[in-house]
Computed example of a mutant assay.
Amino acid sequence: MLDAMAALERITDPVKRARAMTRVLDELKPLAGRRGEVVAQLLARPGATLRSVGADLELHWTTVRSIRDSHLRKQEKTSD
Rank of each mutant, 00 (worst) to 15 (best):
R35V: 03
T62S: 04
E58T: 13
L72W: 10
V24M: 15
A48L: 12
D69C: 00
D13L: 04
A7S: 06
V38N: 07
L50C: 11
A48S: 09
R45G: 08
D13R: 06
L25M: 14
E9M: 14
R68E: 09
D26Q: 14
A44V: 05
A18T: 07
M1S: 08
R65L: 04
Q41L: 01
T62P: 00
E76C: 12
T78K: 13
Q41D: 07
E27P: 13
P30R: 01
D80V: 10
K29N: 12
H60T: 04
H60Y: 09
V64C: 01
A20S: 11
L2G: 14
L50K: 10
G36K: 00
L43C: 06
V24D: 13
L50G: 11
A48P: 15
K74C: 14
L28T: 04
R65F: 02
K77E: 11
P46V: 09
R45W: 07
A20M: 11
P46Y: 09
D26F: 11
A6V: 15
K77T: 13
G33C: 02
R23P: 08
E37A: 11
S52G: 02
T63K: 10
I67D: 01
P46I: 13
S70R: 07
I11A: 13
G54H: 01
L28K: 00
R51M: 10
M21N: 01
R73F: 05
R51C: 09
L2W: 13
A40Q: 05
M1Q: 05
R23M: 07
E9I: 13
V53R: 02
A44C: 07
A32Y: 08
D56Y: 01
V64R: 02
R65H: 14
D69F: 00
H71K: 02
L50H: 07
S52A: 03
S70A: 06
D80K: 14
E27H: 15
R10H: 10
R73E: 08
L42Q: 02
A4D: 11
E9C: 15
A44E: 10
S79W: 07
A7M: 09
R73M: 07
R45T: 10
G33F: 00
L42C: 00
L2I: 15
T62R: 12
G33P: 02
P30S: 03
K77D: 08
R45L: 11
